[in-house]
C-alpha cells in the first residue's frame, strides 16, 4: 500500500515538477536556447498576426466574421507563386495578384454580401464558411492540391541569417532575415492601415458602415463600394501574408488549417483592434513555441495545436471582449 502511495506521489510530483518547475529551470540554464525559441515564436506569431489583420479589417468595417480569411491568404500566395512559375516577372505577378484579389472582392460583394445585406451576423459568418469551402475547391482545381515553393530569389526576399550574441552564450542565437522582413514590413503595413482607417475620408466611411450600415446608407455612403474596398484591402494583406508564409515553408492548402490559429489571436486581441491583432499574434506564437519545447516532457507533442485556444479561452473568462476589444455594456 505504502509502495503504491509512494509511486503515486512520485508520478504526481514528477508531473507537477514538469509543469511548474523544470521548464523554468531550463529557461535560466540555457538562455540562448530560450531566446532562440522566442524568436521562432515571433516569426510564427507575426504570420498569425497577418492573417488576423486581414480579418480585423473586414470585421471592423463590415461586421462580417470572415472565416475565409485563411483560404484567401493561401489563394493569394498561390496566385503570386504560380504566376512567377509560368514566367511572369515578380513585380507583375504581385500587381496581377492585386488585380485578382480586387476582382475577387467585387465578386464576393456581388454574389455573397449584397444579397445577404441586413441578415444577422451569424448568417454572414456561415456564408463565409461556405465561401471558404468554395475557394478551397476552386483553388485546388486551378493550382493543384500540391504545395509550391515560393521563389524567394525572384521576389527579392532576403533569406540569410544573422548570428548574434555569440560572445555571451555557448552558441550564437540565429535570427533569420526572413522573419525580420516579415516583422518590419508587417509593422509598416499596420501603420498604413491605421492611418487609412483614421485619417482618410474612406476610412471614416468604413467606420460608419461598421457602426450601423442602415444609418451609413442614409447619409449617402455607397455600401457596395465600401465593401469592395474593405475586401480588397484584406486581399492585399492576404497577398503579403501568403507570400511571407509561403517563404517560411511552402505555399499550399495545408496552410489554411494553420490559419485557423489566427482565431485565438483575434480573441486575444479583440475583433476590432488592429494593434491587438499584431500583439495577440506575437503572444500566441511565442507561447506556442515555448509550450511545445519546454512542456513537451509532461504534455507530449503537439501542444501547439491547441495551447493558443486554451490561452484565448482563459483570457475570455476574465475579459469577454478580449485584451484590447471595446467593453461590452448590456442594457435593456
Amino acid at each position: 500500500m505504502d509502495g503504491t502511495a509512494f509511486e503515486f506521489f512520485s508520478i504526481a510530483s514528477g508531473f507537477l515538477g514538469g509543469l511548474f518547475v523544470d521548464p523554468f529551470i531550463a529557461f535560466v540554464d540555457r538562455p540562448d536556447k530560450l531566446i532562440q525559441i522566442v524568436s521562432q515564436g515571433l516569426s510564427a506569431g507575426i504570420m498569425y498576426s497577418l492573417v488576423a489583420l486581414g480579418f480585423v479589417v473586414i470585421f471592423k468595417a463590415s461586421g462580417v466574421f470572415n472565416f475565409a480569411q485563411g483560404i484567401m491568404v493561401v489563394f493569394a500566395g498561390l496566385t503570386v507563386v504560380s504566376l512567377i512559375e509560368i514566367g511572369v516577372p515578380a513585380i507583375f505577378a504581385i500587381l496581377l495578384a492585386i488585380v485578382v484579389m480586387g476582382a475577387m472582392a467585387v465578386a464576393i460583394e456581388r454574389v455573397v454580401l449584397r444579397p445577404l445585406v441586413n441578415q444577422p451576423g451569424i448568417i454572414l459568418f456561415m456564408a463565409t464558411i461556405g465561401l471558404a469551402f468554395f475557394l478551397e475547391g476552386f483553388g485546388q482545381t486551378i493550382f493543384g492540391a500540391d504545395p509550391k515553393p515560393v521563389p524567394i530569389d525572384a521576389l527579392g526576399i532576403p533569406d540569410d541569417k544573422f548570428r548574434v550574441l555569440g560572445d555571451f552564450f555557448r552558441k550564437p542565437v540565429r535570427i533569420y532575415q526572413l522573419d525580420l522582413t516579415a516583422l518590419i514590413a508587417g509593422g509598416l503595413m499596420v501603420a498604413a492601415i491605421i492611418l487609412f482607417l483614421n485619417r482618410t475620408k474612406i476610412g471614416r466611411a468604413l467606420r460608419a458602415v461598421a457602426d450601423d450600415n442602415q444609418a451609413a446608407l442614409s447619409v449617402g455612403i455607397p455600401l457596395p463600394f465600401i465593401w469592395v474596398v474593405v475586401w480588397t484591402l484584406s486581399g492585399l494583406v492576404a497577398i503579403f501574408a501568403g507570400v511571407m508564409w509561403g517563404a517560411q515553408s511552402q505555399a499550399g492548402f495545408s496552410l489554411a488549417v494553420i490559419a485557423l490559429k489566427a482565431l485565438p489571436v483575434l480573441i486575444l486581441g479583440g475583433f476590432t483592434s488592429v494593434p491587438g491583432a499584431i500583439l495577440g499574434g506575437i503572444i500566441i506564437g511565442v507561447t506556442e513555441k515555448l509550450a511545445e519545447f519546454y512542456w513537451r516532457g509532461v504534455l507530449g507533442d503537439g501542444v501547439e495545436q491547441w495551447i493558443g485556444y486554451v490561452i484565448a479561452l482563459i483570457i475570455l473568462l476574465f475579459r469577454p471582449q478580449g485584451l484590447f476589444g471595446e467593453k461590452i455594456i448590456e442594457r435593456v
Binding site: V112, I123, L135, Q140, T141
Partner: peptide, 24 residues
C-alpha cells in the same frame, strides 16, 4: 477522383451560400 473531391468542396460552398441567400 481528385477533381471530384475539389468539385465537392466547391458545390458544398456554393450551396451553403445559395441556401443562405434564398432561404436562411
Amino acid at each position: 477522383s481528385d477533381l471530384a473531391k475539389h468539385l465537392e468542396f466547391m458545390i458544398f460552398g456554393a450551396l451553403i451560400i445559395f441556401f443562405l441567400i434564398v432561404e436562411p
